[in-house]
């Protein structure tokens, strides 16, 4: 059999192909996560015109700019409050925040915990590459203990965040973690998150070969992908207290840790208003979009 026409990668329709190649370094894991995301969106069938993506600043902050969706590249750390306004003003939109560990957990940490507490109906994809990439490899709230960064040239003295535990304890209804090695599982969890009502959070561990790995002599991104493969242990439903990654040598617990239900901010808002105001109140976002 001979093939004269090849199929187009289904991911292409999501991409602003006129902006390719993208700015990410060779072997950077962000692109891999975007691949999974694009396929997850295709699979779950959300109309692309009703899907908006919001990013903050940083390497992962550039994701919004490469996706052919309504996309917003906001300020450092503030993707979540922007997404909150977008979602509340038009609840018909599916709103995804796609950003990095520094953006979401350091400068944006306050917004992250409050959005989880409110169960705001947005999906947060956090690509964790263990350092600040865009600015040249500084220490992040996720950097492994003792590892090198440009601003911790003798080793980081800090204990990193356990991000799944942080958001789970604030009330997120869906919490998962995968690595860029786990592309199939990651895609599956993204589908679940996109279909989930409420605050969903997926941490994606990703290699940063140019900065974090080179500075710490951890090899290439292929090496880190192999490490992800060897060190990962799938434990669905495990207590998020148990999933911290403090040291580079620690086992990496991956899986879907939380999958539960509770009313969203808007559900509660409408419910309370209805109770207090009766028929005078027209529930927001139900018919009026």
């Amino acid at each position: 059999m001979s093939v004269t026409t090849y199929r187009e990668n289904p991911v292409e329709q999501f991409l602003r192909t006129d902006r390719m190649p993208h700015i990410w370094c060779p072997g950077c894991g962000i692109g891999t996560s975007v691949n999974c995301f694009a396929r997850a969106v295709l699979e779950c069938g959300i109309p692309l015109d009703k899907l908006a993506i919001v990013s903050g600043i940083g390497c992962t902050g550039r994701v919004a700019g490469y996706l052919r969706l309504d996309s917003f590249h906001t300020t450092h750390g503030r993707a979540i409050p922007f997404a909150t306004g977008l979602k509340l003003a038009n609840p018909e939109l599916s709103v995804v925040v796609y950003s990095g560990d520094g953006d979401l957990a350091a400068i944006g940490g306050n917004h992250l915990i409050h959005a989880a507490r409110r169960n705001m109906d947005i999906k947060v994809i956090c690509v964790n590459n263990f350092n600040y990439g865009m600015t040249g490899g500084q220490v992040a709230p996720t950097t492994h203990f003792g590892r090198l960064a440009t601003t911790t040239p003798y080793g980081s003295p800090e204990i990193p965040f356990n991000l799944p535990h942080l958001v789970a304890s604030c009330g997120a209804v869906f919490v998962a973690r995968w690595t860029t090695y786990h592309v199939v599982q990651l895609q599956r969890s993204m589908v679940k998150a996109l279909k989930k009502k409420g605050f969903a959070f997926i941490e994606v561990l990703a290699p940063c070969p140019t900065l974090y790995m080179r500075r710490n002599r951890l090899g290439s991104s292929v090496d880190m992908m192999k490490l992800f493969k060897e060190k990962s242990v799938v434990k669905h439903g495990i207590d998020t207290k148990e999933v911290a990654i403090t040291n580079y040598e620690d086992p990496i617990i991956v899986g879907e840790f939380v999958d539960t239900e509770r009313p969203t901010w808007l559900d509660n808002y409408n419910e309370i208003m209805k109770k207090r105001l009766g028929d005078k109140y027209v529930p927001w976002g139900v018919n009026n979009g």
Binding site: N9, V11, E12, L15, V34, N35, C36
Partner: peptide
């Protein structure tokens, strides 16, 4: 290969 590729 396509799922892993960071560069589409």
């Amino acid at each position: 290969c396509g799922l892993y590729c960071p560069d589409f």
